[in-house]
Design a protein around this nucleic acid. Structure first.
Lengths: 361, 361
DNA sequence: CTGAAAGCGCTTACAG
DNA sequence: CTGAAAGCGCTTACAG
């Protein structure tokens, strides 16, 4: 069944069939109805490839889920608790705007070949990237080759010539979120506050460390490198980091750069005999689904994944359809989700003074 | 940049370029190398639509995530803890076999239009369906219209003429899993075992009820309808079901048809003042990521989502490429994951006898 | 071993 | 208001 068949059955030319399908104004209602009747009757839908070949858009965007792991070839995006919700949100928003979503996973740098393939062969009109490291050269190349992109978690640059400046960028307010998390612990009376960092190749990794430092500085609490341990956003790294941390220090609170590491750290704390929050307070970041089910339920920082997905999809599609370079940058606010894993500490330091006590209310 | 340009630059005809791309044997190595060099130099990838129009496969499958909700227009597949891991697994396996995956969400029956669209317009060559109700007429239509399909969680029928018999089907061993879960509780000494059912429009809903009944029957424990309450697989329904249940009965154990409802029920039990597992044992089904983090950690039944995804993808692609109707049916085994939410009960019934005690070891 | 040519199913400028 | 025709970028039977 093709447009020729429809034309023959409806007693018109293929031109007219095409005009009806594309809603041209100059088709009389009767002709239009006659053609539509045949189209409906035969479940006819124009061949997408033929249309594209004639220059119509494929109305397909790519969603590229990047999860570059140094060590393993065991890929476990399967239970990545973070990408799932975002992925579905992207699909929903795109579908609502009449776009299909091709999802592509990237575990090694060479997997970017899959993305180049669908871009150069004109299958997709644009792509959204998540899980990327900052300044990723593979993505840079794609942007420079003309792929329309929206990148999540990428530094917003001053340099106007930087390739990423030609991309839409959607970030959480990482610095401010980390700042607020640390400030929250300080206001609870903590001064020995440790930080388990995320993957420092990612914006969310180094920006959250920055927010942590900023809060300490503002409160006049000296930064101690012994209180900062490196993690890489996965649960096991939080677990190991907690052990390393307590070998060299004795913090009363921990700010973990994401919830997964906070969960790993809580596990280690339990094994080491520390109670949360009685002995050690802990706060995470991201508010993944699991966090509210933990005992104690994890206090964390939350940004709307839905909003981020919406911003990425809508702006990407706008930039595709308007054929202009829309390069907006967005920073989505982060708010505190107070649960059970943080506790006010008894204050026994000389630092304590009226003004400080007041600020804690 | 198209094949004509490449041909011109390489000094050959478009025919030869095409032969090189498609790996025809009758191209001398030097010619081939000469052409490949130009192709590489210009990042040339043949236009996917043009190839398709000439009859090449699109190498794209659909993954249709169905989540039909009666009540709400708030769609929350976002945090559906079950679809996420399966989705990524499907994408990975498909990518490995050189296929792209178009993901489509269906929240209302009319959303199936999106699937029909990409099928009739030849964008996809086949599709995998998850979250479907048993005997869904919309899917039936698609199968009958010739879409190659793999359906997860669908009854395997005797009737050879049934449309679903033309589809690949991949199920968990629901009946056996539910049977084992119930048997496990019985072996722990329980006889007052309640069941919170899943959505009875789905195979996993009614098949798990069947397994529950089977185990009771085999052990000579009378089935009591007062111990069976209806749920629909979402957390809140488990929460409500637990309240309804304890209004009319006093079970010592609960088999919830999935983990999400088990979580909801645990919440209700806590509110009602029952301790798990001291007062009430509870077992779930699916082993979602959250379950291991619960306190007490949830004992549950687990099937390999990875294996299910692999079976669905590989067989679907086989059926597409071999152009024959592969209609294999698979039942993936389910195993017990013993954690902390179930406890042996003190036995104080006349029913207790030597043989029974033995079977409990 | 290689090129010229037909044709996949559309859309759209052109002519009437 | 409508049809005939060109052409999008490929692939492949055909001819040599």
């Amino acid at each position: 069944m093709n447009s020729k068949d429809i034309a023959r059955i409806a007693g018109v030319s293929r031109s007219t069939v095409s005009r009806v399908i594309n809603n041209y104004p100059n088709v009389p209602p009767e002709t239009k109805e006659k053609v539509l009747k045949v189209i409906r009757e035969y479940n006819y839908v124009p061949h997408a490839s033929a249309r594209m070949l004639r220059g119509k858009s494929s109305k397909t965007i790519g969603l590229v889920i990047v999860d570059l792991k140094k060590n393993s070839d065991i890929h476990k995006v399967y239970d990545n608790v973070y990408f799932g919700p975002f992925t579905t949100a992207v699909i929903d928003f795109a579908n609502q705007l009449g776009y299909n979503v091709l999802v592509i996973t990237v575990y090694k740098a060479r997997d970017y070949k899959k993305v180049r393939e669908v871009f150069y062969n004109k299958t997709i009109n644009g792509a959204i990237f998540i899980g990327v490291k900052n300044d990723d050269p593979d993505i840079k190349n794609l942007i420079e080759a003309g792929l329309k992109t929206a990148v999540i978690d990428q530094e917003i640059r001053e340099d106007e010539d930087d390739a990423f400046n030609k991309s839409i960028i959607v970030n959480m307010d990482n610095v401010n979120g980390a700042y607020k998390a640390t400030k929250y612990l300080i206001n609870l009376g903590h001064t020995e506050i440790a930080h388990i960092t995320g993957d420092m190749e990612k914006l969310s990794g180094f920006a959250r460390l920055e927010g942590y430092k900023k809060a300490l500085k503002e409160e006049g609490i000296p930064f101690k490198s012994s209180l900062v341990v490196k993690g890489d956003f996965v649960e096991e790294s939080g677990y190991k980091a907690a052990y390393r941390l307590f070998k060299k220090a004795k913090p009363t609170a921990i700010f973990a750069s994401n919830d997964q590491m906070a969960i790993g750290a809580m596990q280690a704390l339990e094994e080491m005999g520390y109670k949360v929050p009685e002995d050690v307070s802990i706060i995470g970041f991201d508010d993944i689904t699991i966090s509210r089910y933990l005992k104690p339920a994890l206090t964390t920082m939350s940004a709307s994944l839905l909003q981020m997905a919406e911003l990425a999809v809508e702006n990407l599609i706008k930039s595709i359809e308007e054929e202009i370079a829309i390069t907006a940058k967005f920073v989505v606010p982060v708010k505190l989700v107070e649960r059970e894993s943080c506790k006010r500490i008894e204050i026994q330091r000389e630092k304590m003074n009226d003004e400080y006590a007041l600020s804690m209310k």
